[in-house]
């Protein structure tokens, strides 16, 4: 079952369905009643507003201190990484993220090939990698077949890519239940 791990505009769910996705994590603070949709929240910097219940919480750190705090916070499910903050995740913090079982999300809309290459290295070291489109427009969405080939073209083995694109997002989706 394919899971799109980040959609910024809920109207893109229909388009995403045409691409082959069956489950979606939508960035919103509103209640989602539709089946197959779950809410996610991305916290950033020092803003620690209370996240709604039954939502998957990501944190986008802007400094090393924030990253360490987020990795030790049990209420945060994953770390959001892109061009601006990928350098924060060094060896010791990567090991911490593995021991705390945090997901590492790569935002494709703002990630260069350098970030993708680093993410492949993290994946090989056992980190739970997911690739998110974080689309707010149609043209920012990524079809699964394109995504698999995009990562493979950066030097990853196909079997690992399959687990990052299929298995890890499903595991993330199942972290929280639908029940209020």
């Amino acid at each position: 079952m394919l899971v799109e791990t980040c959609i910024l505009d809920p109207r893109l769910v229909e388009v995403s369905r045409k691409l082959g996705f069956q489950r979606y994590l939508v960035e919103t603070r509103k209640d989602l009643r539709e089946e197959g949709l779950r809410r996610r929240v991305t916290l950033q910097g020092d803003s620690r507003s209370a996240s709604p219940n039954n939502s998957i919480v990501f944190f986008r750190p802007l400094s090393r201190g924030q990253l360490v705090k987020a990795l030790n916070d049990p209420g945060i499910h994953g770390i959001s990484v892109d061009n601006d903050n990928f350098y924060l995740l060094r060896k010791n913090l990567l090991n911490l993220s593995k021991s705390k079982e945090k997901f590492i999300e790569i935002r494709l809309s703002n990630s260069s090939s350098n970030v993708i290459r680093r993410a492949i290295e993290w994946g090989y070291k056992g980190a739970k990698i997911v690739f998110s489109s974080c689309a707010s427009r149609i043209s920012e969405l990524w079809a699964p077949l394109s995504l698999v080939n995009y990562i493979t073209f950066h030097g990853a083995y196909m079997e690992d890519v399959i687990s990052w694109v299929y298995t890890n997002p499903l595991e993330l989706f199942q972290l929280v239940s639908d029940d209020p």
């Binding site: 969405l141 079809a143 995009y150 493979t152």
Partner: peptide, 24 residues
Amino acid sequence: YRAVLASLPLVKSVAGMEVLLVPL
């Protein structure tokens, strides 16, 4: 063909129209 498949999401617009090319 892998290079072409990986490049398709980078097609953001065609003739000034916003599109997404989905390989099937």
